[in-house]
Design a binder for these strands. Sequence first.
DNA 1: TCATGCATGTAAGAGGTTACATGATTCG
DNA 2: CGAATCATGTAACCTCTTACATGCATGA
Lengths: 179, 179
Amino acid sequence: MSEAGINSTAASLLGFLHDGPLTGWELVARAERTIGPFWSLTRSQVYRELSHMAGLGLVAPGPVGRRESRPYEITDAGRRAFADWAAGGPDAATMRLPLLLFVVLGRHIGADRLAPMLAEQRRRQAELLAGYQRARNQLRAAGADPFRLATLEYGITVARATIRWLDGLGPQLTAPPDN
Amino acid sequence: MSEAGINSTAASLLGFLHDGPLTGWELVARAERTIGPFWSLTRSQVYRELSHMAGLGLVAPGPVGRRESRPYEITDAGRRAFADWAAGGPDAATMRLPLLLFVVLGRHIGADRLAPMLAEQRRRQAELLAGYQRARNQLRAAGADPFRLATLEYGITVARATIRWLDGLGPQLTAPPDN
DNA sequence: TCATGCATGTAAGAGGTTACATGATTCG
DNA sequence: CGAATCATGTAACCTCTTACATGCATGA
C-alpha cells in the first residue's frame, strides 16, 4: 500500500509510457507534440520524475541504447499508480493568463499601450489557430486517435473564441492613441 | 538602477495598489473577485511579495489599523516598476489543463471512465458561465470599468466555446460503457 | 574535422501550495 | 461568553524554470 499518490506531471509521463518504453528525450518530444499548448513540462522535470519513479518502482530503466539513451518502461505498479491517479478525475485547471491580467489592469496601463498588445495577441491567436487546423487535417487524413483529435479541436474552438473576443472589444480598449 | 524586474505576481499587486492602499487580506479578496479564474494567487504569496516589495521600496506599509491590518501604499518607485513590467507586454500564457491531459490520455483511461468526467466538466462549465453572466449584468448596470467587463466577456466566450466543444465530442469519447 | 543535433543530467533559485500558529473583533 | 469572521504571518515542502556542464554521433 504505497499511499503516496503521484503528481500530474508524473502521471502524464506514465500515460505516455503505456504505449511502450521511451527515453526522457522522447518523452519531452512526445509531450510537446501532443499536449504542448495545454500541458507544459521541461526536460529537467522529466528526468527528475523518471529517476524518482524508478526509485518507487513505477518505471524500470532499460538497457542503455545509443548515445546514452536510457529508455524507461512502465511497470505493473506504474500502471496501477496511473489508474489510481486517473480515478481521481481531473484537478481544477490552473490558469495564469497574463493577457487577462493586462486587460483587468488596463486602466493603469493605458489604452494607448494596451491596444498594440491586443493587436499582437490577435496575430498570435490566428497563427495558433492555423497551426491547429493544419495539424487536425493531417491527423484526420492519417486516421489518428480520436482523443488526440479532440484536443486539437479544443484548441481550435478556444482560439476562435479568443479571436472573436478580441475583435469584439469596445473602442475604449482598442482605440489607438487619440491624436 | 535596480535592474531587477519584478514578477507578474508582484506586478499584479502593484496594479491593484494604484487605486489606493490595501492590506494583504484585501488584496487577496480583490484578486479573487476580479481575476480569480484567470490569475490565481494565495495568501502566502501576497504576504511574501508585500514584505519583499516593502524591502525594495516599491510599497510602503502604512499605520496598523484595526485588527493588526497593515495597509500598503504604492510608492513612486513602485509605480515605475509596474510601468516597466507592463512595457514588456504580457508573457506567454502558462496553461495546465488537467482536463485536456485526461482527454489525450483517454485511450489509457478508458472511454467508460472518461465519459462521466466529461459530463461533470460540462456541468461545471455551465455553472461558471452562469456566474460570469450574472456578474456581467450586475457590472453593466453599475456602469463599471470596461476593462473589468472585458475580462468577464472573455470568461463567457471561452466557457461557451468549451461547452460547445464538450457537446460536439464524438460518441467514441462520450459513449457510456457499452453494456 | 567541425558544426549540428541528439541525449543526459545537475545545481540553484524562484514560485506556489498546504498546514500550522496566533490573536483581535464583532455579533448573537 | 462563545462562535464566527477578520487578519496576519511562518515553515515546510513541492514544483518549475534557467543556466550550466558534458559528451556521442552524424553528415557535410
